[in-house]
Design a protein around this nucleic acid. Structure first.
Lengths: 220, 220
DNA sequence: ACCTGAACACCGTTCAAGT
DNA sequence: ACCTGAACACCGTTCAAGT
């Protein structure tokens, strides 16, 4: 209802995609929608509410569509297992922040209280219960997993994982090797380009093992 | 050298601590320092560079001070083990963002290329090597661990972990229970207040187990 | 070297007024 | 209901000028 609001939010998304989040001003948005800046306040309480609305719109794209494949290509001939559903959600999250890098930060700052965000949490709860995690541990593990997944997405989107993009020799150029024994030990592995898709997969595998471990330990 | 720059950065930290990050403007900072806004540009290239300088200043507080206890109270009678050093760094990171909630976000956005940031990464590298993690896996696990720790800190600082602060019934009030089978299953555990200190400890224990597992699996 | 004053091109938001 | 115009109190930054 009131498609006007969605129209405004989508215009804001478009500006952010094209020119970055800081280009999203009430004035620029108003111009794009073809209206005076003040008219926006009919449909959006605040600039903060505008940002909330923008992430809300993205989150709805993150959820598995009803009766479809869960978001990562596992067709629904058979029911996906708990780890497939977890993976699907994680990949959907990363896909969103790859398409909209500016959004990664907002996922951390804006509390996840929209209905779609709650639904995403619910999917993780169910997956963990099905994995055999004791119910008392489920909320903690949900927070751990979502924190890591959103953190990975935000790190990738902000370039935190690839500081070498600016300077090929990367980080350790600035300090004498003697002060960095860890870097010396790891040595050549630091010079390889990082395949973040493979790394994300390996991370999710580690998290899967962690969930299985928590289930195996049971109550204690 | 040029203590003037540090003086300016510290004034910026003070403003952020007192009135939030968005109160840190070149004009407000100039006034606090007792100078015209333009004078700041002698000591700081940009507003972006100012923010970088602010996190840089915080990061130096995060590192174990030379010859001291590693940051979390383990006295240096005996050398701390790898997991104690990891824990110390994690707790130091959380302590920083608890003292300076506005900083959590910057830790994600500003690439960690300052000497102090590199030193922190080096500590993690060394700890992982000592834990027996294969060297090819060390950089990935460092990124996984730092992503989680910074993510936890940022989530806590931004209130992502406590949406119930606004509405005691929290998140699921908005949706019919039938649509949230996961929440129903977990049930009463959702109504308890969250002890984030205990949760952080439990999370670090899980991460420790993950590191041990990676070491045990070895090359493959 | 270090600082200033004036100016430019922006912001979010309030408020009274229009239809 | 929905939109407008003018205004307020801000921004970051450039540029020429001062000492």
């Amino acid at each position: 209802m009131s498609g006007r609001r969605e129209e405004i939010l989508d215009a804001a998304l478009a500006i952010a995609d094209e020119r970055g989040l800081e280009a999203v001003s009430m004035r620029a948005l108003a111009e794009r929608v073809g209206v005076t800046p003040m008219a926006l306040y009919r449909h959006v309480k605040d600039k903060a509410a505008l940002l909330d609305g923008m992430v809300g719109r993205l989150l709805s794209a993150l959820l598995p569509t009803d009766g479809a494949d869960g978001g990562d290509g596992v067709l629904s001939g058979e029911e996906p297992t708990w780890d497939q559903r977890l993976d699907a959600l994680a990949h959907a999250c990363r896909a969103v922040t790859q398409r909209h890098p500016w959004a990664a930060h907002l996922l951390f700052s804006r509390p996840a209280v929209t209905p779609d965000a709650v639904r995403a949490v619910d999917i993780i709860y169910l997956a963990l219960v099905e994995a055999g995690v004791p119910e008392s541990e489920v909320p903690r593990l949900e927070r751990l997993i979502s924190t890591f997944v959103i953190g990975f997405a935000a790190s990738e989107a902000s370039g935190r994982f690839t500081p070498g993009a600016l300077d090929p020799r990367g980080r350790r150029g600035q300090l004498p090797a003697g002060e960095l024994p860890g870097h010396s030990r790891v040595g050549r592995w630091l010079d390889l380009p990082v395949d973040l898709t493979a790394e994300f997969e390996a991370d999710l595998a580690d998290i899967r093992r962690m969930v299985v471990g928590a289930a195996a330990r049971g109550g204690e």
